[in-house]
Design a protein around this nucleic acid. Structure first.
Lengths: 335, 335
DNA sequence: GTTTTCATTGTATACGATTTCACATCAATT
DNA sequence: AATTGATGTGAAATCGTATACAATGAAAAC
């Protein structure tokens, strides 16, 4: 039915080993023979079977990518970075959404390992012992991507979420704000949730401002939560003069809630977010934020993985990328 | 090194055939034997090799997905729909960005076929003869996803872009607008570009309004183009009372350009887009739009593909999903 | 003229599963 | 007691490639 390397061998009058050499660009083939084989390949429309190749060579040129949710702009950006670099090194990616659900994560990790991926890029929620166990039974390299783990010295690429939050809040403080509210993410999320709250807290304390949990409300990273939680802060006395949202979407929700209440951003209240999604510059006023280099996180982690798969020595297997404060006109000095 | 089915057979005192039966849930195994084998699997930490299985069974339970750009919210949404249904039917997906570039598309199609995917979901730009040829040499089913082709009767799932544009423009016309500008996509894009322009044109002509290409400007679907092209319309005499943007992002760009010029939306100019991305309801005023069921397009096309891979008879292999007009407050009647 | 060397090619096996077919066992039927 | 049928199991072929090793032939060295 399908044309195999054997058919090509017969058609071109050589052995299958020679065809294999031609297909794999092995230099030990006489140019004339090579030409004959190429012609036979063309004539027969031969397409090498990567599955058979994978079985024989024990390499699939495929990497597994576990991602929370590809329809989330942040992760989609990471995914694009991953795929671009993967493509550059001739790898394909098998993508699995796991929604930061532990059991789903474990399941897809095992599926990917069964598929004999050459490496694994894991982007998820908390890394538990069960995760680590699954990683250990794998005999391929693993890189954590935008995901941190206290557990084991697993290679990872991420930003410093605590510091990013610290910088965002400090940007408000240096502009004279003392009463700063926070719309946080859920605490069970180690990086985006807890770490950002800690950064907020440290910034306040560094500036000698007492932390008060009445000024913190917990959302779920969606526009609607920002929009719904903001009115609570508006009724407070004293009313906060600035709001730090743990991500841009909630920040934008907050801006609109403030505007809907007849107040002005940044006139009455300044707002800052984190992420620097496209949306941040697509609202009025444009949202100040701390840029996370999501594309780069994907690209760098994939690059790191290629090195590990290639058994190269890597100087840095735990890399923290720089974030960047971007002040736009949703923030002004508090006078 | 790695534990194989043969090791499990020895460990449990049966043949590899029996182990295979146990692993594949073949009912013809004595419960007692099954138990022995399961124990050996557990003890040895056996993980079936899907590559070997794929070679032997000629099935990989993997489908290829060609997508223009996963970092684009629209396509990411489709991808999520695809992956959810794929997951439901125990398929994995290999994802390839091809940026609607023909040669890149052809290349990844061939790579995916080499990897022996059980089916292919193609989402791209124009489907050329070269594409069709590549599809024909594949002996696995193919479904076009949010992509139309005049060429051949290839199964597809999409919406009617022409009608969606028609409905958007008609929504403006019935509200008394006669002077309606359009910010279009590039004409080399058959569905989002050309089809939407045609819908715009038909809506005008149906209402007895002359089409005038001075009222059409071509953008690239980005916020910036909407923002940059809008001022041109603002200087026209007579100034259009409404703008139809070929997608939401350009529509939002237009809104902000109008606002930046000191005019009011919808007071002075109404704006409508297409897509219904999250952003549409995250701007003020909220953008009216025609909703495209992107998630469903992905889900339905994957479901269709599973049927084809399973050799089921499908009644409808060319499905057009319904779009929906959503009028928000970026549109008001022209008095 | 014989021996070495080197480039090129072929043979045979491994990769780790699925699957066909044959066989053995045992209960049910005649 | 012989036949049938169902059930459970194993031996061996097969999937399509890579690759170690052997073999070949021609050119180079002696």
């Amino acid at each position: 039915m399908n044309v195999t390397i054997y058919d090509v061998a017969r058609e071109s009058g050589v052995s299958m080993a020679t065809v294999s050499r031609v297909v794999n660009n092995n230099p030990n083939v006489k140019p004339q023979t090579r030409k004959k084989v190429y012609e036979a390949i063309e004539r027969l429309g031969y397409r090498p079977n990567a599955v058979a190749r994978g079985l024989a060579s024990k390499k699939t040129t495929t990497v597994g990518v576990v991602i929370p949710d590809i329809s989330n702009a942040i992760f989609a950006e990471v995914a694009r970075g991953i795929e671009d670099i993967a493509n550059m090194y001739h790898y394909n990616i098998i993508l699995c959404n796991a929604d930061k659900k532990k059991e789903k994560e474990i399941r897809v990790i095992n599926t990917l390992l069964e598929k004999q991926v050459d490496g694994l890029l894991f982007m998820g929620g908390k890394v538990t012992e069960e995760h680590v166990h699954a990683f250990q039974t794998a005999n391929v390299p693993i890189v954590l991507c935008a995901t941190t783990s206290e557990q084991e010295p697993i290679p990872f690429v991420d930003i410093n979420h605590e510091a990013a939050a610290f910088d965002a809040v400090t940007a408000l403080i240096v502009r004279g704000h003392r009463s700063i509210a926070m719309i946080s993410g859920p605490m069970d999320d180690p990086s985006n949730g807890l770490a950002r709250l800690q950064g907020y807290r440290r910034a306040l304390e560094t500036a000698g401002i007492a932390f008060d949990d009445k000024y913190v409300r917990i959302g779920n990273y969606r526009y609607e939560t920002g929009n719904d939680l903001m009115p609570y802060f508006l009724t407070m006395h004293p009313r906060p003069t600035a709001v730090f949202a743990a991500n841009d979407e909630m920040g934008i929700g907050a801006i609109h809630a403030i505007q809907d209440a007849g107040l002005n951003v940044p006139g009455d209240i300044s707002v800052i977010g984190i992420d620097n999604t496209r949306m941040a510059s697509m609202v009025r006023p444009q949202l100040s934020t701390v840029a996370q280099p999501m594309y780069d996180i994907g690209a760098v982690s994939m690059r790191l993985l290629t090195k590990l798969m290639n058994k190269e020595v890597v100087s840095q297997s735990r890399v923290v990328l720089a974030h960047e404060l971007i002040v736009r006109n949703s923030v002004k000095a508090n006078t």
